[in-house]
Amino acid sequence: MNPIKVNHLKFSYDLETDVVNDVSFTVEKGSYTTLIGHNGSGKSTIAKLLIGLLEKGSGEILIDDLELTEANLDVIRRKIGIVFQNPDNQFIGATVRDDIAFGLENHQVDPALMDDIINNYAARVDMSKYLDQEPTRLSGGQKQRVAIAGVLAMKPEILILDEATSMLDPEGKSEINALVNALHKEYGMTILSITHDIEEVKKSDHVLIMFDGKIVKDGLPSEIMIDEKEMISLKLDAPFSVKLANALKRRGIVLKETLDTERMVAELCLLRSKK
């Protein structure tokens, strides 16, 4: 059973150009999958299709082997949580407490149970101290943590991050990355992260690259990210380590490892001591 399976998915806003053009991919259970691509490649459209915010043109979307249709939209949305890019535009409640409650109210949770759930998930994202704060008093990173708490409170199996850190400062970014990593490792949550952050991609289990509406690469970061020329041709950037390895290659130093910083450093130190 795969959390997400997409077959020959097509979508177009204007019935002329396909923003998503015959896309097929699988996200495996418990994996940390990253989806990257240039601006306008169709990544965010995929996310909206997966949770049924947009209606597909053709093809099929299977969530836990269940096909996404109008009829079971509600069931599927309980399985997938999504965090969007702009922290301000997804904070619905007047306070942190009310915002976490919003999803619970929608799912008709008994109000008597809500306080415990809210306290529990606020603690999970380390926002217990801010329960009665208004969003204007929170940083971008804190707002995104609240968004994650709101999603977690609905106990989804899959978490989609749609450029959730791209509007945050470095501190907020690392807060969110650490939190998502913990959710992945400790709870075994399936993560699909749409991102521009090459370092995040390097650490992921699986990477999908989109280019002009199509998935053009699908595999392990260690296989895909090491081709500098290809990454550039896909309007992306290669990791610094890969670029450095290539610069060294031009100088006659060929390394086995070109992605993992630590191993590269170890290899270089070994080369140096041999001389």
Binding site: K48, I51, L53, D74, R77, R78, G81, I82, F84, N86, D88, N89, Q90, I92, R97, D98, A101, F102, G103, L104, E105, N106, H107, Q108, V109, D110, P111, M114, G150, V151, M154
Partner: peptide
């Protein structure tokens, strides 16, 4: 903003005119 907010609300299970419980 309105559009993004509507998406966020829908993604979290909000359906207009559907019964919701109330926290407060």
């Amino acid at each position: 903003r309105a559009e993004e907010l509507a998406d966020a609300m829908e993604a979290r299970g909000y359906v207009v005119a559907q019964h919701r419980t109330r926290y407060k």
